[in-house]
Amino acid sequence: MKIDITVPNNLNEITLRQYKHFLKIQKNVDDEKFLNAKIIEIFCGVKLPHVMRLKVTDTELIVKTLTEMFEQKPRLLKHFKLNGVSYGFHPQLDDLTLGEYIDLDTFIGDWENIEKAMAVLYRPVVNRLKDKYIIEEYKLGKDDLLLDMPMEAVLSSIFFLWNLGLDLSEAMMKYLEKAEGQTLTKHHNSLLNGDGTTQFLASLVETLQDMKISLN
């Protein structure tokens, strides 16, 4: 039986929904060969019985291709289209409201709910003039729409926020290390005092480490 498989060429062809599905499967599967089969099923859209008919060498090559894509550190994807709607990355992170900051800080390291953080970072573009654009005001309850957003946007935005921390001076980095473990209340107070960016980056350092994302 001939089986046609389309392997994604880049992270734009993989959705957040698919990746979250994979993470759930990964938690409960110890057998590497079966996990490879599930990877192909999820990311290539091939039914499991058909995957089982593939040669082992072919499955290993497909999984290697997919794995290498996730090991990349993509440049920030500022725009993408989803269901006919143009989404743009938040053009002014310094202008985050308290509510936006709380949701971003709370969910950026939580893969089960990371679409809530993405809903803060990416929103429909309501006006555009050349390279400048305005995004829709932040609204609760729209995060489910982003489950089908491309993984390139998800990962590139996470790395972008992390790189903001890398650009800090040595003294700032030392401050960030001391800031670990601060309560959410302290985060809120610091925002009101004008230190929100520093506290935000401190939280990102910790959550990214918890997510076990390679920072090298």
Rank of each mutant, 00 (worst) to 15 (best):
L166I: 06
E136R: 12
L164K: 07
N193H: 14
H187C: 00
M149L: 03
E180T: 04
N189M: 15
Q182E: 08
K178S: 02
K178C: 00
L161R: 00
T185C: 03
W162R: 06
L147W: 12
E152H: 04
E136H: 09
L147G: 06
L164N: 06
T185M: 05
L192A: 05
L146S: 10
T185N: 08
E152G: 00
M151T: 04
I158Q: 05
K139Y: 10
E137V: 09
A171Y: 13
N163D: 12
K178Y: 04
L191D: 12
D131R: 14
N189I: 15
L145F: 13
L161F: 02
F159A: 00
Y138V: 02
G165E: 07
E136I: 06
T183D: 09
E137M: 08
M173V: 12
S156N: 00
H188K: 11
K174A: 07
L147T: 11
N193G: 07
S156C: 01
L191I: 10
S157F: 14
L191H: 13
L166Q: 10
L166K: 08
E137R: 11
V154K: 06
L166M: 06
V154E: 07
K142D: 12
I135K: 02
M172L: 09
E137K: 11
L176W: 07
G165R: 04
A153T: 07
Y175W: 10
D167C: 03
M149W: 03
Y175R: 08
L192K: 02
L166C: 04
D143Y: 13
N193Q: 15
E152W: 03
G181C: 01
F160H: 13
Y175N: 13
K174T: 11
S190Q: 14
A153C: 02
M151L: 05
L146G: 09
S169F: 07
G181H: 00
A179P: 01
K186R: 14
S156I: 02
L161K: 01
L129C: 09
F159K: 02
M172K: 14
F159N: 03
S169I: 06
P150A: 03
E180N: 03
H188P: 00
L155W: 13
E152F: 03
G165T: 09
I158R: 03
D143H: 12
K132Y: 09
E152I: 04
L184V: 13
L168M: 15
I134E: 12
N193Y: 15
D131W: 10
L184M: 14
L155Y: 13
N193L: 15
D143M: 00
F159D: 02
V154P: 01
D131G: 06
L168R: 11
M173I: 12
T183M: 04
K174I: 11
D131F: 11
N193I: 08
H187K: 05
L176F: 07
S157T: 14
L192D: 02
E137C: 05
Y175G: 15
D167L: 02
G165Y: 10
M173A: 06
K139L: 09
F159C: 01
K142A: 06
